[in-house]
Design a protein around this nucleic acid. Structure first.
Length: 421
RNA sequence: GCGGCUGUGGUGAAGUUGGUCAACACACUGGAUUGUGGCUCCAGCAUUCGAGGGUUCGAGUCCCUUCAGCCGCCCCA
């Protein structure tokens, strides 16, 4: 085969499109229940939208699809949050009297990563952002929305890991404490951690190589550096989760990769034993400075993102299937020279909302029956030359394997009767 | 970006120390059975083994390159 999809991209074929449609529909319905509204932003933006200053992670350079057109540098969106906040600021949605703005997005994202299962270069992400107000209730609502969706997808083996990074003061105090603590022990840590010490010392805490290293276990705890206000905020988040019956586990090693998070951060993981390295279903947190960064006022936001490829894969592992099918309700075949009658009959049925498949090839009855079986249709209409001469056709009811001959004027009613059985 | 495994028809797959007609099964198509199938029987269905080079009298089997998938690491917005 000389042509194929680029690495890390894939086609959704007809046999799979239904589950995507249903998953997206489910997501949209749940969002409607929570009164989150969709926002659609471009799939590419000025590179500077995604390439933030002060961002200590190196993913920005390595993993973005950036291209130049004339003087401009553009980048395919690697995530949804930046574009949404940009739009929130650009269109001055902060002027809305009813903040927070509750927004969601759903669409393709692009990252130049080494593909694995549930990890593609073009992938589909759904996310919500609740922007413009700060309260523990909002944090809980956002988490609840995400949990709601995955529960409705039949995913039950999950746990919520949650933590707080505190406010700026708490966080930078802790950051410094970590640096001070690890610096003397640097030789006892792995190579990656050497880099992390300068770039993002918080991430040393969830290093896999050094996970059992006693140096890590005795590291300063973030909770010891929280100021009163941050601690209180977090306690209220947890109380709200209790009230909503959402079980969680406090994990003070959970720091997330990005610098912009403040206060609440969380990750919802699969507890299935075979989920391997891809166990996170969705994750997010609160950010206090992003709105300001894109030129808006000092407003806080809270959000999460979820990859649909992984969501659907996990749901299927737990037995989820789309509830609708693309099966036919009626299959129309022909015997003898019946001209345009089968097509006309099909058209009339469709106008009554019945899913009709019709044989369009001059094939043997045996072949037509095989197609009819494959279509899963419970009703087969056989348009025969001699019956048609009297304006009649044969209707086979596959539910009880009976067949009747009815006039064309009663056909739709007869079919509906069988389907309703 | 680094490391490991894999790649044979529509599908699941056999292919032994390189020798040839690339098993077997399912699916599919046609016929037995020109307008009532689902059973059975018969026949057809990979000039080719991800792609491209090389070694050889001869390669799916050996070598090189390349593409893709999977697993782990990095990273995970």
């Amino acid at each position: 085969m000389n042509y194929q999809t680029p690495r890390g991209t894939y086609d959704i074929l007809p046999e799979d499109s239904l589950k995507w449609q249903e998953t997206e529909q489910l997501i949209r319905e749940v969002c409607r229940l929570y009164r989150y509204q969709e926002i659609r932003t471009p799939v590419f933006e000025d590179t500077k939208v995604f390439k933030r200053e002060n961002d200590s992670s190196d993913m920005v350079n390595k993993e973005m699809y950036t291209f130049a057109m004339g003087e401009e540098s553009y980048t395919l969106r690697p995530e949804g949050t930046a574009g949404v906040i940009r739009a929130f600021d650009q269109h001055k949605l902060f002027g809305n009297p009813d903040l927070p703005a509750r927004l969601y997005y759903l669409g393709p994202m692009f990252r130049h990563e080494r593909p694995q299962k549930g990890r593609q270069r073009q992938f589909t992400q759904f996310g919500v952002e609740s922007i413009g107000a700060k309260s523990p209730e909002i944090d809980a609502e956002v988490i609840a929305l995400g949990i709601d969706i995955i529960k409705r997808m039949g995913i039950s083996s999950v746990k919520v890991c949650i933590n707080t990074l505190g406010d700026d003061a708490s966080r930078s105090a802790y950051r410094n404490a970590l640096k001070e603590y690890f610096s003397p022990h640097i030789d006892e840590l792995c190579g990656d951690c050497h880099r992390r010490l300068e770039q993002n010392p918080l991430r040393i805490l969830d290093c896999k190589v050094d996970a059992e290293n006693p140096i890590l276990k005795d590291a300063p705890r973030l909770s010891d550096y929280l100021n009163e206000e941050s601690r209180e905020y977090f306690d209220r988040v947890l109380k709200m989760l209790d009230a909503l019956d959402i079980e969680y586990e406090i994990d003070d090693r959970l720091v997330r990769g990005l610098d912009y998070y403040t206060h609440t951060v969380f990750e919802v993981k699969s507890t299935r034993p075979d989920s391997g390295a891809q166990s996170t279903i969705f994750a997010g947190g609160r950010y206090d400075h992003l709105v300001e960064y894109f030129g808006g006022p000092e407003l806080s936001g809270m959000g999460f993102a979820i990859g649909l490829e992984r969501l659907i894969a996990l749901a299927e592992e737990e037995g989820w299937k789309p509830s609708r099918t693309s099966d036919a309700e009626v299959y129309i075949m022909s015997a003898g020279n019946v001209g345009t009658a089968p097509l006309e009959i099909a058209q009339k049925l469709r106008q009554d909302g019945i899913i009709a498949d019709v044989n369009l090839l001059g094939r043997s009855m045996k072949a037509q029956f095989k197609s009819a079986d494959r279509s899963q249709a419970p009703v087969i209409i056989i348009v025969g030359e001699s019956e048609l001469a009297e304006n009649k056709v044969n209707v086979k009811n596959k539910k009880n394997d009976t067949q009747v001959t009815v006039g064309l004027d009663q056909l739709n009613e007869t079919v509906k009767g069988i389907l309703a059985e």
